[in-house]
Design a protein around this nucleic acid. Structure first.
Lengths: 344, 344
DNA sequence: AGGAATAAGGCATACGTATACCCAAATTAT
DNA sequence: ATAATTTGGGTATACGTATGCCTTATTCCT
């Protein structure tokens, strides 16, 4: 037999000792007001003594509510699949806190964007709702999102907040953040600001950031030169390549606004290799404020997204959907973090 | 009503359409051999049509098996609680993969080391077992581990593998890794190697690494100078302080073996500030190979732990415990990653 | 050919909780 | 004082699946 049969106590055991019925135990422990104070205290005391804990499966089965949220990471399939975007990893902390505060369990999965999510998580009652995290080509997963909507799966995702979003969306104020970055660089006397990142609508968040930069330039009556925009997806390699392309094209620039810190780091590295000094020759500003951002030399000026609010809002918004309450606002302001890479 | 009552299909619905009983459906879908091939295929087909998925709660309740594992991070309480050790974060990826491959769900929590884990996860049938991840003062949580053992909670933890471990433990070959580091530095002509990290038994993994370094020194007939060991816990600040202390004490050294990359990064920064060149004046080697390690200048030589094996072994070992099978081996070799910070 | 083994699946039930409904006693209202 | 509530809790049952125990055809063996 090996294993002890110490018979995990059930609500019946408690009921017996308390001299009440099982339903009363259930009610007492859930704080129903149709149990007297005295009885509740007695029951709670016994529960503590017996080291009782509600069986999650029975509870969820009966109540049709799992009090669990599934956090799903999806990204464009990477070759190794090992490295997760550090920004989302950081968000993990904030989301776990938000769920823990509400007594929710958090299920996580890194599986690629699939069309079976609603089956795997919602239909099977594993989770009451999904949080979707990931960059990636928007158009690629649009159809999946529609499927989720069609199957009435509750979900929220992190991304660019638009009026025509499919499903609930929470995200940073990317346009405002782009403007912040632009204004900062302009205030430093920079005039020719390169933007490294996809600027098309397949990557709405990046596009928003670029748009914000444009707004800042416009406000300062500076021209927007399309030659200064170079595609870069998210890796260091992309950033490096983009800088090399810029230099090879002979385009003049005195600043770089990278759509992510990884891109920025790659860019700085390429600049260094080409004999350019940061920030003297070229100021660099990134986005996300990943841990490595403060470790580069010079340390990277960047935009910091409010992760605490992010997790909180994602969870709150999801819960609101599940409980059919009105949803909270969904755009979160971002903050400029000035470090060495933009001078000063 | 607002919400659709599309009546999620149950095994009864399938049974009805297939003209069999509900138990047969259950058997068919679980692959019981007492259902004929033909019937099984028919049932699977219908299940697919109806978009059926087994209710996880009912299934777990009946079978008393949740097929879920809880991943718990514990660390010495940090002031903000926000930043998680990047090494463990990286391990998260490997563990999710290992669980996903086995069709297990993964529950995660960052809550501090508590004494209620068995209640919260195992007794409530949320999870079949726990994976514990975290550095921290061993003596602090020893009692908690004993409680887990006492409550017959299934768990594995990551750490220093000893014969007298409480509960199942999986970990890197820290002694071997320390030796690797030492041998590498010695091969580079270094003779006075400082060790930054706690070396006492409150931090067994660090102690093992120090021991490995000692072994390498001994083998090369070099003396072990206690003055060259300086405490450092895990942050950059610790690394920086340790280097400053070394310099202030006037101890000569031409290499540093830091017990973690964060410590190493802090040390490199301090060296830079003091006008010491890395690697010319002092070679530096870290531990963990966190993403930021390749971003420093010079890039950090470090020890890379085999994360894939780690996740796989943790999960396998836990599962073995749950299913009362013999457990696999538990010591994982580590690898030296040579970069610029140790020269050449 | 007749009994033994096997195959395929039905029947009944248990897992542990939450909740709709009901009922008696105590309280309040009129 | 009697009807109308309220309080506190009991009864019965449902949530959806998995499994032990039977039953009935088949197939097999000698």
């Amino acid at each position: 037999m090996g294993r002890k049969r110490s018979a995990k106590p059930t609500s019946f055991d408690i009921a017996y000792r308390a001299g009440v019925s099982q339903p009363t135990v259930s009610r007492a422990l859930r704080g129903s007001k149709s149990v007297s104070e005295a009885t509740r205290l007695r029951i709670q005391e016994i529960a503590r003594e017996l080291n009782y804990s509600v069986d999650k499966n029975a509870s969820s089965l009966r109540s049709q509510r799992s009090n669990t949220i599934a956090l799903l990471f999806f990204e464009d399939p990477t070759p190794d699949g090992a490295n997760i975007n550090p920004f989302f990893l950081a968000m993990l902390g904030s989301i776990t806190r938000a769920t823990a505060n509400r007594g929710l369990d958090l299920l996580i999965s890194f599986q690629k964007m699939e069309d079976h999510w609603h089956t795997r998580y919602q239909d099977s009652h594993r989770a009451d709702g999904l949080i979707l995290l990931g960059y990636g080509d928007y158009t690629l997963y649009e159809s999946r999102l529609k499927q989720l909507v069609a199957s009435e799966t509750e979900f929220v995702r992190w991304g660019s907040v638009r009026d025509d979003n499919i499903g609930a969306t929470v995200g940073s104020d990317n346009v405002g953040a782009g403007r912040l970055a632009g204004e900062h660089l302009i205030a430093q006397g920079r005039r020719r600001i390169a933007f490294l990142g996809q600027a098309d609508e397949h990557y709405p968040e990046f596009a928003d950031r670029y748009r914000g930069l444009g707004a800042a330039l416009e406000q300062a009556s500076l021209p927007i030169d399309p030659l200064l925009q170079r595609d870069a997806l998210s890796s260091e390699g992309d950033g490096r390549a983009a800088v090399q392309a810029l230099l090879a094209a002979g385009v003049q620039f005195d600043a770089i606004f990278a759509a992510s810190d990884l891109i920025a780091i790659g860019a700085m590295r390429a600049l260094g290799e080409m004999g350019k000094n940061v920030p003297r020759d070229v100021a660099v500003i990134g986005f996300d404020d990943i841990p490595a951002a403060s470790l580069t030399s010079p340390p990277l000026t960047t935009i910091s997204q409010d992760l605490n609010s992010a997790g909180e809002l994602l969870v709150e918004s999801l819960l609101a959907g599940i409980e059919e309450r009105p949803k909270p606002s969904k755009v979160i302001p971002a903050k400029l973090v000035v470090r060495g890479s933009t001078g000063g």
